[in-house]
Amino acid sequence: MPKSLVSLLIVLLSVLFATAQTKSSSAPSDLPPGSTSLIDPEDLLSELQSQQGEKPLVFNVGPSILYMQAHIPGSEYVGATSDKQGLERLRTRVKTLPRNQPIVVYCGCCPWSHCPNVRPAYNELQRMGFTNLRVLYLADNFGVDWVDKGYPTTKGQ
């Protein structure tokens, strides 16, 4: 293999590794880095658009004013789970669901490491025994990581 090709591969692998590290290090501490607890936007979109398999229930656990402007079609508004009322709404909504129900929660109100909503929602659902639970990884916010990519949205409450 030519030396220049080897160098190129090393550079490419380094970039991929650095990207993976950035994502892992910015994950909330209670969402294990690189774990299956996180789902990327393109993967969720693919699941939602797939004709096969059970689709997850998608819960928005962010502020209503953001949800009203744009949200993932079919996602249910729960409200900000950084406060007690939001967490109570979440508990009420999922109370009767089977514990293996596929669930994705998302917010995207602000950069991932600063989001006050996804961690409480994730922790609460995990505490309640949900085993098929994931959090949508939105690095910057819903606008940048979903809307600007041209992924489908709808608006209104």
Binding site: I65, Q69, C110, V147
Partner: peptide
């Protein structure tokens, strides 16, 4: 206190700040 209409008139505020 803002609202969705105002945010949309500014191109959408879908993440802060």
């Amino acid at each position: 206190i803002g609202n969705a209409n105002l945010a949309e008139s500014y191109g959408g505020v879908l993440g802060l700040p």
